[in-house]
Design a protein around this nucleic acid. Structure first.
Lengths: 190, 190
DNA sequence: TTTCGATTGTGATGTAGGTCACACAGTTTC
DNA sequence: GAAACTGTGTGACCTACATCACAATCGAAA
């Protein structure tokens, strides 16, 4: 499937655009291809874009002072990723985004997103709903963090995204769950 | 200050509306007054509204199977609160909202919010930015949960909201931090 | 085939924070 | 003023998970 179709199908789930409107919408995106392991956003970068995943897997993550990694999100096809704090505040990136596998993405600059939101009312609606879903999902994850132990969170993750288990190294899954890789290993061997 | 002025000042930080537009916008809100301890949204309720706080303090929280409470958010004047998952999905409430102190709020139904978003482009812009801020804040809190120990999170909270310490019972602060009240007590007596 | 690096399993031990128990305020109710 | 209730401090003990150390596995490079 073509990039344009993938995005169109995704957007159509929330809003209805005429073909002309969608063509115009799409014209603001730039296609890019990355190799496994490549960095898309690195700590300290100026962040201009958000990324819509066409194929492959990305991760967004934070590295603390002890060089420990915490994964905020795995981004799979039709998901969006960026350092949203940096993107909206204009600050330098504190969150990294890189490629777990080879990946193709569509880039949208913050400027173009705001332009589209202004010019196409439905476009603004789309981005409001997308952010809203992200907000609710993050709040759920926060609750799960406070409420459940690592084993519970592990099972929750696998139930929600069964494909992750085969594609993503266990180390990264541990970083997402907020436990050490050793603990994760013990969890699913019991 | 009047409810209308409070809301206007708040909204003006993000968007510009003409007086007529704002009058129309405001006409969709309903004023309500609650007593300390009163429930605004209870588990299992149908959720129609979100609430803009004029005065007083609310909390939104989740109760797990062991009857343990987890606080998602303290809502102070000019903050918004609801069970956003229920509000957007139409499901019954799993998150509660109640009053830490006597409180005055403005209620906006989900239906009216969508109506306003449709009729006033700037209105949609406002709600997109509000949600966006919530999203980024929740993501930061999630990161802090993964990264920092209870003491660190405690100091972070006090630095950000010094007033909370005097107004909100320590038990609730503990529930927000995700530690037992005993642990919290030990933290700040050392 | 050999070698190297990345990934994972597993034991031993340490620690933050949970749970339970009880004491002791301050404040509301009769 | 007694009684009951809500909020808080503090000790003793327990548990989930971290950390460190090292072994085992596997794929890619050479």
């Amino acid at each position: 499937m073509q990039p344009k179709e993938i995005l169109k199908e995704h957007v159509s789930k929330t809003i209805t655009l005429t073909d002309d409107q969608f063509d115009y919408f799409f014209s603001h995106f730039t296609y890019k291809k990355f190799k496994k392991g490549q960095t898309i956003i690195g700590e300290g970068d100026k962040v201009d874009c958000e990324y819509f995943v066409l194929s492959g897997y990305l991760k967004s993550f934070f590295i603390n002072d002890d060089m420990k990694m915490f994964i905020l999100q795995f981004a799979m096809p039709t998901w969006w990723a960026s350092d949203y704090n940096a993107l909206y505040s204009g600050d330098r990136a504190t969150v990294n985004v890189d490629c777990i596998t080879d990946a193709e993405v569509l880039c949208l600059t913050s400027q173009d997103r705001e332009k589209l939101c202004k010019e196409i009312h439905e476009g603004e609606h789309f981005f409001r709903w997308r952010t809203n879903k992200g907000y609710v999902a993050t709040q759920k994850r926060l609750l799960s963090f406070m409420n459940n132990d690592a084993k519970h969170r592990y099972e929750e993750l696998l139930a929600q995204y069964p494909t992750l288990y085969n594609i993503v190294p266990k180390q990264l899954i541990a970083s997402y769950l907020g436990v050490s890789r050793e603990t994760l290993s013990r969890l699913y061997h019991s």
